[in-house]
Structures are given as C-alpha cells and as structure tokens.
C-alpha cells in the first residue's frame, strides 16, 4: 500500500480570497490505488468506475426527483437502489473504503418513508458530503491517470537528425535550436541564426504531426501550431534574409512563438505530463 502513497504531489491551493479568515489548504495528489486499474480501460472494456458513479447518482438524484413529484413509492424504490449501489461502490476500491459512510446512507434511506422533505433533506447532507470529499481529493488524480494520454508513449523522430527521441528529450532539442536562433541573432550572426531557424521550424512543426495521436479533431491545430505561428516563422525568415534585419520585428515574432506556441501549449498540456512523470518515478 505504502508504494502508492509514498510518492505524491502537493499542490498548494491558497485561498487568496479570504486571507486570514480561512487557513490555506493543501491539495495532495496521490497516484490512484492499483485496484482502480481493473475498473478502467485497457484492463476493463468499459470505464466501470464511471458507470458505477452514474448508477449511484441516478438513484440518489432519483429520490429527490420523485419526492418533488410526490411519487413516494418510487422515491422509496430509488432509496433502496441507492443503498445497494453505494454499498457496491464501497467495495470496489478497498483502499478508498474510508470515504464511504454506510451508516449515513442507511439513515438517509430510513428517512425517506417518513415522507417529510425537511427530514429527508437533512439526512442526505452527510451522504452528499462523502461524495464531495472524495471528488475533491481524487478527481484530478483519476483524470490524470486514466483520461489524459501519456506523452511519454509518443516517440518522436527528430526531422533534423532522424534520431528517435522521447517527447521530453525532443522538447530539449526544440528549446536548444530556439536558443540557437535568438542567441546568434543577438550576436549579429544572421547566417547562423538563419540556419538554426530552418532546423527550429522543422522541429517545431514536427509537433504538428503529434496532435492526431491524441486528438481526432483537426480544428485543434489552429492553436499552438496554427496560422499565427506559421506567419511568425515566415516573418523571422524574411527578417533574417533582409539586407538589414530589424530587431524590433525579430523579437516581436520570437515573442509570438514563445507565448502562443510554447507557453500556451505548456499551460494546457504540460501539467498533466508533469504529474504523470512524478508518479512514474518510483
């Protein structure tokens, strides 16, 4: 057990809104327990854990829908179905059994036949809290583990050297040639900067070939690797072959690639990769 808990990430979620009134909370992002693997593809054909969640929320919510309609017979049926679904769920992931409060659920089900909305509402409170606590603590971890594809499974072939590299190593190559462009420009070595730019562009555009490994919708390619970036590359090339390159234009286009390209892509894609990597390092 300790294996899964020994490596975790701490993300500090500071509650800036109420300095002093509320203590800052830490969020611990642990790798989900191994027993959950069996409930998600590829080990199971269907995402069983999510299906179980729908079963619970369908019956839990069903109690209130029926209550509002005054259909007490069905409200009681849903309450029974909910007790069963909840118990079932509590056994699915042994490491998470403490999140569940079977006593609270039974008390909730026992309150339904009273047909007293206030009493039922009150009894549902502690149950809802068990849902919320687990969601707050585990959803991001589960998304990272089972929904976010692993970037380290993508093997890149460097378009300049034809060498096969991991995605992370390839990023270093990109970063290196980007610096080759800017450093040489700063030194007034426009020829070298120009040559580095050709390699940089090839490497950068190679990223465009990877989108379809995770996305099936081409529209995403308007971001990070789309028209504004292509134009920035063209502008840089033009600037570097001009008789007298204009530094203002040069740095403006470097900025476009850095912000609309590297930075925005990192903000959407890299956090998950960082968490996944941390979990792998055991």
């Amino acid at each position: 057990m300790a294996r899964y808990y020994s490596f975790f990430m701490v993300l500090a979620v500071s509650l800036f809104a109420f300095p002093g009134t509320l203590p800052a909370k830490d969020m611990v992002l642990k790798k989900p327990p191994a027993s959950l693997d069996k409930l998600y593809p590829p080990q199971s054909k269907e995402p069983q854990f999510i299906q179980q969640m729908h079963k619970m929320s369908g019956s839990f919510g069903g109690v209130f829908v029926n209550m509002k309609e005054g259909d007490w017979e069905n409200a009681e049926k849903k309450a029974q179905a909910f007790v069963e679904a909840y118990e079932e769920t509590s056994k699915m992931v042994p490491e998470w059994k403490d999140y569940f409060d079977l006593k609270a659920v039974k008390e909730f089900a026992a309150a339904v036949p009273s047909r007293d909305p206030a009493k039922i509402g009150k009894a549902s409170g502690p149950v809802g809290k068990t849902c919320g606590k687990c969601h707050g603590e585990q959803t991001v971890a589960v998304w990272t583990r089972y929904h976010w594809p692993k970037v380290d499974q993508i093997k890149m072939v460097d378009p300049v050297t034809d060498k096969e590299l991991t995605y992370g190593k390839f990023m270093h190559e990109i970063s290196g040639t980007f610096k080759g462009v800017t450093v040489n420009f700063g030194e007034g070595q426009y020829d070298r900067s120009s040559k580095a730019l050709r390699d940089f562009k090839k490497r950068y555009m190679e990223l465009k070939s990877t989108c379809s490994k995770c996305h099936t919708n081409d529209a995403v390619k308007e971001f990070f690797v789309g028209q504004p970036i292509a134009e920035a590359f063209d502008n840089l090339a033009r600037e570097l072959t001009a008789a007298k390159p204009n530094p203002g234009n040069f740095w403006k286009n470097v900025g476009t690639i850095g912000k609309l390209g590297c930075k925005q892509c990192h903000l959407t894609h890299r956090s998950y990769a960082i968490i996944q990597e941390t979990w792998e390092e055991e």
Binding site: R198, K202, E206, K208, S209, C211
Partner: peptide, 12 residues
Amino acid sequence: GDREILSPQQDT
C-alpha cells in the same frame, strides 16, 4: 544537403 517534409499532418 537539406530536406523538407511533405505530410498531411503538417499541412504540407
């Protein structure tokens, strides 16, 4: 030498 890549994924 140098080379260019013509590929549908890169819109080239």
